[in-house]
């Protein structure tokens, strides 16, 4: 099974939900279940797809998020008010959840709700 490495950064107060650590380096499988189930490790059975942002969000919730899921996720995507940048580009230009992750991608999650 192949893996891809990603650099993750949380900002705007979102880091408080992730052990108060702004920067994380993670490794996720290159092929993931179509239902975005992040709990399955090892060889996958059933339908798979290339790892995408939808899967990453579920993976972060399962493995890095420490508290208050509702402040990070809503309806299987990030909560409104969280800006996502993929390699310094708005994820709305990259297909949002459907963007297929590549090795060494840098993903930034910025909360706009911490203080305005």
């Amino acid at each position: 099974m192949t893996f891809i490495s990603l650099r993750i950064e949380f900002s705007g107060g979102l880091e408080l939900l992730f052990s108060n650590e702004k920067r994380h380096k993670i490794t996720i499988p290159a092929q993931v279940p179509v239902d975005n189930n992040p709990k399955v490790d090892g060889p996958r059975n059933g339908d798979t797809k290339a790892a995408d942002m939808d899967f990453l969000i579920h993976w972060l919730r399962e493995h890095l998020l420490k508290e208050r899921t509702e402040l990070f996720m809503e309806n299987s995507t990030v909560r409104p008010g969280i800006l996502v940048l993929i390699n310094d580009t708005d994820w709305e230009l990259e297909g949002e959840g459907e963007y297929q992750l590549k090795d060494n991608d840098e993903i930034v999650f910025i909360s706009t709700l911490h203080g305005g």
Partner: peptide, 20 residues
């Protein structure tokens, strides 16, 4: 709000934050 967040990120500004 999105433009503000992008401005802060690209200018590397520090947001102290306030209690909501």
């Amino acid at each position: 709000l999105k433009e503000c967040a992008v401005w802060v990120w690209w200018n590397n500004l520090r947001v102290v934050g306030r209690d909501r």
